[in-house]
């Protein structure tokens, strides 16, 4: 449609330059969704607004072939191709009742690769949109095949009050990275991550995750939403290989947790 109008105008006006002026560049920089999700225009509007964007295979969104357990679906976002240029990364699932999964803010010392587990309600596109310091949006994507139910299944914790006496308990370990440089941190925190979508169980989830350097500077900051799976297991990579890092967490109930790593 736009293409046709473009050609028509170009021939009528006899000047491509004029056509460019008439049709703002936004048209060309808002390409159609390679995954053909009916929700793309809606969700991108929520998360990146009206801005120009491009789809990018350089941002790797790894998901399993099938969501065997829709309450604990592992995803890995690898945006190392944009190392040092990332202002913010937003990750969401088009067809989840709560689309937003997390925001990720790396500082110097972070290697932008992050793994965690999520809940999905049905098969959906998963997006990882990177906003660079230069103000460009690059969008990685993958299709996740699922039979669903993850968001409207009560957390296991609700049947088992274990979490009540262990809320915020962190187990963590530092590892070598796959490149042999820097360090990897993996941790698991006890939290029900209730979505508020299940009868009479209010929303209760971890909102803030900060990974702090030995000096107390936040090297990675994340904002989580309830689709992050119960008892989150999160893996961060750093280019900094010093020890002495710590983790700080806060949930929407105002509970704060801190743990040396």
């Amino acid at each position: 449609m736009n293409q046709q109008r473009w050609r028509l105008c170009a021939s009528l006006c006899g000047a491509g330059l004029l056509a460019l002026l008439i049709f703002p560049k936004a048209q060309a920089a808002q390409p159609p969704d390679p995954l053909n999700s009916v929700m793309w225009d809606y969700t991108r509007n929520i998360f990146i607004g009206d801005a120009d964007y491009r789809f990018s295979q350089a941002i790797k969104v790894d998901v399993p072939a099938f969501a065997e357990d829709p309450t604990q679906v592992p995803i890995t976002i690898d945006a190392r191709a944009f190392q040092g240029r990332i202002q913010r990364m937003v990750v969401w699932a088009d067809l989840n009742p709560i689309q937003h999964i997390f925001n990720y803010y790396p500082s110097a010392g972070a290697s932008p690769k992050v793994s965690l587990r999520i809940k999905v309600q049905q098969s959906t596109a998963v997006r990882a949109a990177v906003l660079t310091h230069a103000g460009e949006w690059h969008v990685g994507y993958a299709n996740l095949d699922a039979a669903g139910g993850g968001c409207t299944t009560p957390s296991m914790g609700n049947a088992d009050p274990y979490w009540q006496s262990h809320l915020g308990e962190v187990k963590a370990r530092r590892f070598a990275t796959d490149t042999g440089e820097g360090a990897r941190y993996k941790f698991r925190v006890i939290h029900p991550m209730d979505t508020g979508l299940v009868d009479a169980i209010p929303e209760f989830y971890l909102q803030q995750v900060h990974l702090k350097s030995p000096e107390g500077e936040t090297v990675v900051r994340m904002e989580l939403s309830p689709p992050v799976a119960e008892n989150p297991v999160i893996t961060f990579d750093l280019t900094d290989d010093r020890k002495g890092y710590s983790l700080w967490l806060r949930d929407n109930g105002g509970n704060e947790f801190e743990q040396a790593l």
């Binding site: 399993p64 592992p74 793994s115 370990r173 590892f175 070598a176 893996t235």
Partner: peptide
């Protein structure tokens, strides 16, 4: 032991 994530392990 190597700290791989689930998706890395699956691959």
């Amino acid at each position: 032991e190597q700290g791989l994530s689930m998706t890395e392990t699956m691959a």
